[in-house]
Design a protein around this nucleic acid. Structure first.
Lengths: 212, 212
DNA sequence: CGTTTGTTTGAAATAACTCAACGGGAGTGG
DNA sequence: CCACTCCCGTTGAGTTATTTCAAACAAACG
């Protein structure tokens, strides 16, 4: 979505880790753009199981759909300390739902998240734990690249193993074991919140069986 | 999507089971509306694993997104013998991408599939085989209701256990065992291509832990 | 310095998978 | 009408992937 970010109405501020940008059923009158840090949208089952359904990285707009529905509806939480800009919804809405071109650009953005969801349905439904984690790590690096956070396949990775578990749909203990293996095979290194792809080709092979 | 279906340009015809409505990378100049029968969109991994990512039931438009991309891109196959109407894409496109209201209705339709995908990400990521199957069966009945195919919780269910497996992301053998259990507990009956919800409340409880 | 949060490890339990075989039913060709 | 095949559902036995529980440890935090 093309949204200028330098207007007076755009407030920039900080959010502490674990604070919510949105809660279940909550109405909102603004849209967030992540300037720095990571956030996610998730679902919680009554017994405590959690599934993360979207990650928001620096540069991402947080839940473009809000523009349409005017509701957040589902919880969004900061996975790290966060720096966000807040954009009044009416401002975007004026541009994106009352004008044809804006609408079109928004459609594009939604189509993009649709594609992403489809990919994850395949991952969750038909790939092994190792494949899912490799696919995720590969994805993360590619998504971080545009924001300049990746230097020679080395980048920040602030997710805990619990977070990873709730993205790829396995237990955190098993995440740990898969990561051990990948480290042992020299595919990645992951420590102190930083990820290195030591063997990107192998990572891609393990995680990204291209669909036929 | 609101599309009138009684125009001369709308051709209606039959498609045999296992025939493809679309193939990988295929361009298309028409949109399908399922009049009768079931179809699905799927992804195939190189080693043969299949994940179904969308089901199309009577009354559904098959892949509304085509209107935008002009490409099918991913395979869509008939799961039963099918009766479809074919609508020239340019006709819909004229209405839906060059006019504001049409665009809006299309957005709504896409938002709907987005919601669906999110739900399935949670199911695939965090629910057990039994929960997924119950959720699916419940969903199917609700989706068939508008087309009048459900009489007192009894409806057609032409999916094979292989199909079910590829929707819920488990093996067909395991699908069989879960179904056995559900039958044994008197929750459903499923035979000769027909499904009965004998205990809808229990089915909902098993499959539909509402998200918090 | 004590507390909390996140990672690592082991051992046992369970969910789901694979392989293999059998049987019924529906279609097909003779 | 029969024999044949293929598809689909069913079942059993053995295996593998993943989970759970529990504990120990390390790093970060106030």
């Amino acid at each position: 979505m093309a949204v200028t970010t330098l207007e007076a109405s755009h407030i920039r501020y900080e959010v502490r880790r674990h604070k919510h940008l949105a809660r279940r059923h909550e109405h909102t009158d603004r849209l967030f753009r992540i300037e720095d840090g990571w956030a996610c949208q998730y679902r919680l089952l009554p017994d405590g199981r959690r599934q993360i359904i979207a990650l928001f990285l620096p540069g991402d707009y947080c839940e473009a759909q809000w523009v349409l529905t005017g509701q957040a509806n589902w919880p969004v939480v900061a996975l790290t300390d966060l720096s966000v800009t807040e954009i009044p919804l009416h401002e975007i809405r004026a541009r994106h739902t009352r004008e044809f071109d804006g609408m079109k650009s928004m459609l594009g953005s939604i189509m993009h998240t649709l594609k992403n969801h489809e990919k994850w349905i395949v991952n969750l439904g038909r790939m092994t734990a190792t494949e899912r984690i490799c696919a995720l790590l590969h994805d993360l690096v590619e998504r971080l690249r545009p924001s300049g956070k990746v230097v020679s396949n080395h980048c920040p990775m602030p997710l805990t193993q619990y977070d990873l578990a709730d993205i790829v749909g396995i237990s955190s203990v098993h995440v740990n074991r898969v990561l051990q293996t990948l480290r042992g095979e020299g595919v990645i290194s992951l420590e102190a919140g930083r990820l290195s792809l030591l063997n990107p080709a192998e990572l891609l092979r393990l995680g990204g069986p291209a669909h036929v």
